[in-house]
Structure formats: C-alpha cells, structure tokens
C-alpha cells in the first residue's frame, strides 16, 4: 500500500472508530485490549488498532459521557482491568451515528456504483 493510500485509509477509518467502539460496547462491557482484539477479529483484520489510537477514543467518549468505566477487583493472580460500558446517552448517540453512517454509505454507494459515462 502506498503512502497516499495509507493516508486515505487512516482518515476514513478514523471517522468511524467512535461508532465501532460504541457498537462493540453495546452488548457487554469490555477492557481496552479486548476491544483491540475484537475490532481486529470482527473486521477480518481491517481495523488493527494500536493502544495509542484506541485509548484517546475511549477517553473522549468517556468525557462526552457516552461510555463509563470502572476498574475490576483482581481475583487471585488476575490483574485489575479497566472495563468500559456504554451509557444510555451513548446508546442514543450510537443510534444517531449509525443512521448518519447508513445515509453516508448509501450516498457513497450511489455515486461509486454509477457507471462511468463518456
């Protein structure tokens, strides 16, 4: 992949990361590395996030009260983990973002699927 492509890929992915993180948290609370792994697995390797990208997103979503967090109490030799869960405000935001995304996707599809005319 050339440098130009990498730039577009990064920009496009960046725009949807908030939505994807909220979506993954919709069903269950998760900790940071768990989110990184799930994003990778569920997207078949399209979204390979580094800690330096994910955590700032989580901090921002938390600042906006879309998610909340709590440190787990370690059991036995298990280390303490910071779990994130979606709030009611976050669920409402996810619904709106998803609607916007569908609208954008539909618009993009219409343009991209239009046959080239000379």
């Amino acid at each position: 992949m050339n440098v130009q492509n990498e730039k577009y890929e990064r920009q496009m992915k960046k725009g949807v990361l908030d939505m994807l993180v909220l979506k993954l948290l919709e069903s269950d609370e998760k900790y940071g590395y768990q989110l990184i792994s799930e994003l990778n697995e569920k997207s078949d390797g399209v979204f390979i996030l580094k800690e330096g990208t994910l955590y700032p997103i989580l901090y921002r979503l938390e600042d906006e009260a879309f998610i909340e967090s709590n440190w787990s109490l370690p059991e036995g030799k298990q280390v303490s983990r910071k779990y994130y869960s979606i709030t009611a405000k976050g669920k409402a935001a996810l619904e709106q973002i998803a609607t916007t995304w569908n609208s954008i996707q539909s618009g993009i599809d219409k343009i991209m699927e239009t046959p080239v005319t000379k």
Binding site: E51, G52, T53, Y55, P56, Y59, D63
Partner: peptide, 14 residues
C-alpha cells in the same frame, strides 16, 4: 511511536 500516536489522538483539551 506509541507516544506519537497518543499525542496525535489525544483531545485538544488534554
């Protein structure tokens, strides 16, 4: 590299 990534993504407020 990780630090740079954090710095690029942390909010303006931070």
């Amino acid at each position: 590299d990780i630090a740079r990534e954090f710095n690029e993504n942390l909010s303006e407020e931070e």
